[in-house]
Design a protein around this nucleic acid. Structure first.
Length: 408
DNA sequence: TCTGGGGTCCTAGGACCC
DNA sequence: TCTGGGGTCCTAGGACCC
């Protein structure tokens, strides 16, 4: 029988911001950007939540609901730093700690009773240790499976500890909304509601063959979850993740939609550079390049192309992304978002012929040097994007009709 | 309400091969 | 000849999570 703790930081981003600016304490705070910006709420203080503000809500909506809230930009470096500090504290309680995301972790506390006492006592010690080392509050769920531990930490919020005694899992889950089950989102909730399933207890009464026929693989997992089991499927593998990334992407939403080809292609160049850089940092080579294009009306398309040979070179990524863009963009249509996404990683690119290999090698060296310059002098120190913009101008000059066009 | 950015996993259809 | 069955790869879209 396992003893799993799920530790979830309370209003993490907001709490970290409060450490840097104590005047925020006790106020309605929204992290994510200015109230008139495009974007969504990353985190809201409990005070702001009283007005209906919650994460993922558009900033403009949050402003309407809570105009007196203080809107602050997020600081990912700060959150990463504090996430590491939390991780260190947790590591003192058990060697088996998995950070499931920046603000939550699973700890396998099985067999630590002699060291830390029974689960509730250990959890209170842990809670206090996190508090004293980081000045941050967390909530802790204790159960025999990750799934139930996660749901119970949610029920414990804010700043609480909740232990689901072994054997009581079904009783604990039964009265909760199905939406509380990780992996059940808006759509699945609606589909379940249509079957008369509202509570986890309702779900538990359906047999798994029926759920499987109705929801496929996911239905089978769902049947297990309703009984408090870590049933497998994406949720559990996500938790176990921590290995090599499967994809890398960057995207950008414009402050104002644009149909300007030069602007759009410059954005693609910048996104390609960012993706290429991440590939090099991770020592990865990607075979599939994918473009993401969202129009003004929010209709979104993705178009991919798989290369014969994997790459980690900015210009190769850009060439593909731009080709996909030229082929698929309805010229003149205003664009809201562009994204560049790469996947199908190979450990390394296979050999080319010698001449090409040499050229490739030198490109790689140049890019690595540019990466080092950026580290030293900042992101704007070196940019291929500006070079691309200049080249593009020459081309449009020769081809005033604009895109798509075959430059000479 | 006017909708971010970075991820993971699943499904489904078509091409292609044996 | 009127139509197999399995496997793999690729592409597009979508649900979901933090």
């Amino acid at each position: 029988m396992k003893t799993i703790f799920h530790v979830d930081m309370d209003a993490f981003f907001v709490s970290v911001e409060e450490l840097f600016d104590p005047s925020l304490k006790g106020k309605a705070v929204v992290v994510g950007g200015r109230p008139n910006e495009r974007g969504v709420v990353s985190a809201a203080s409990y005070e702001a939540r009283k007005f209906g503000v919650h994460s993922a809500m558009p900033l403009r909506t949050a402003y309407k609901m809570c105009p007196h809230a203080l809107f602050v930009d997020g600081h990912p470096e700060r959150y990463r730093d504090y996430s590491h500090r939390v991780f260190e504290v947790l590591g003192r309680f058990s060697p088996q700690v998995e950070m499931a995301s920046i603000d939550e972790a699973y700890i396998d506390m099985t067999g630590t009773e002699r060291l830390h006492g029974p689960p509730l006592r250990a959890a209170h010690l842990l809670h206090e240790a996190v508090r004293s080392q980081t000045q941050l509050n967390c909530s802790i769920g204790i159960a025999t499976s990750r799934l139930v531990a996660k749901i119970s930490s949610d029920q414990a919020k804010p700043n609480g500890v909740l232990w689901v005694i072994p054997g009581q899992e079904a009783r604990f889950l039964a009265p909760l909304d199905v939406r509380k089950v990780p992996g059940v989102g808006k759509v699945t909730e609606k589909n379940l509601n249509a079957l008369g399933i509202h509570k986890v207890g309702d779900l538990a009464r359906f047999d798994e063959t029926f759920l499987e026929s109705r929801f496929g693989k996911w239905g089978l997992a769902l049947a297990g979850k309703a009984r408090g089991l870590d049933a497998g499927g994406w949720f559990d593998s996500e938790v176990a993740a921590g290995g090599d990334p499967k994809s890398i992407s960057h995207e950008h939403t414009y402050g104002e939609d644009t149909a300007d080809a030069e602007t759009l292609e410059a954005t693609l160049a910048r996104l390609s550079e960012m993706v290429g850089r991440r590939l090099r940092e991770n020592g990865l080579h990607a075979r599939t390049i994918q473009l993401k294009l969202r129009y003004q009306d929010f209709s979104t398309l993705t178009r991919a192309h798989t290369l014969e040979r994997a790459t980690q070179i900015d210009t190769e990524i850009f060439d593909e992304a731009r080709a996909l863009f030229r082929k698929n963009w309805k010229a003149g249509a205003k664009v809201r978002l562009l994204g560049v996404h790469v996947s199908s990683f190979d450990a390394c690119a296979p050999q080319l012929d010698l001449l090409a290999e040499d050229k490739h090698e030198r490109w790689g060296q140049a890019l690595a040097a540019a990466d080092r310059l950026r580290d030293k002098y900042g992101e704007s120190a070196v940019s291929l994007a500006s070079g691309m913009r200049a080249r593009f101008r020459e081309r449009t000059h020769e081809n005033p009709a604009g895109l798509p066009g075959k430059p000479k």
